[in-house]
């Protein structure tokens, strides 16, 4: 069955995430970060930041809520039982710190088929309260046997 490409270009409502100091610490500890910028307010302030700094990969936390509507959109039609997270790219702007409010939009960039596999590519764009783009993510999910 060919993939349905009608959803290419479709966007979903942006979500907002308020970045908390303890959430940054919890995430930093779970991924093994030891840099005090992520864990110690005094160290972060001494380095010129207003509060603890989120590790770059904290993008998965502040962008998570934006992803669901696209991934589960029946028009996109991903068969979850056969899906794997194939590849991932992030491109970062200014660092995110506790207290930031991050808005993330999510778009279907491409849907294609190759060798019996479906490729579903989404883009997330996350912006802070000052309007700076803090991260652009490209999420590629592969479905075997479309």
């Amino acid at each position: 069955m060919p993939v349905n490409t009608s959803a290419i270009g479709k966007s979903y409502p942006p979500t907002m995430y308020a970045v908390g100091r303890e959430k940054i610490r919890e995430y930093a500890l779970a991924v093994g970060e030891t840099n005090p910028l992520h864990l110690d307010v005094a160290a972060a302030r001494a380095a010129g930041y207003t509060d603890v700094v989120a590790p770059p990969m904290f993008v998965v936390v502040y962008s998570a809520a934006a992803l669901g509507p696209g991934l589960f959109d029946p028009e996109v039609g991903i068969k979850f039982a056969l899906m794997v997270h194939g590849s991932q790219e992030f491109r970062w702007g200014p660092l995110v710190v506790a207290g930031d409010e991050i808005t993330t939009s999510f778009t279907v960039k491409d849907i294609s088929e190759s060798g019996g596999k479906g490729f579903y590519v989404f883009e997330s764009v996350s912006t802070n309260q000052a309007g700076d783009t803090v991260c652009v993510g490209t999420w590629t999910n592969i479905v075997r046997g479309v």
Partner: peptide, 11 residues
């Protein structure tokens, strides 16, 4: 963390 500008991976 400021130094990492982009990262792309295949799982």
């Amino acid at each position: 963390p400021h130094a990492l500008k982009a990262l792309s991976v295949q799982f």
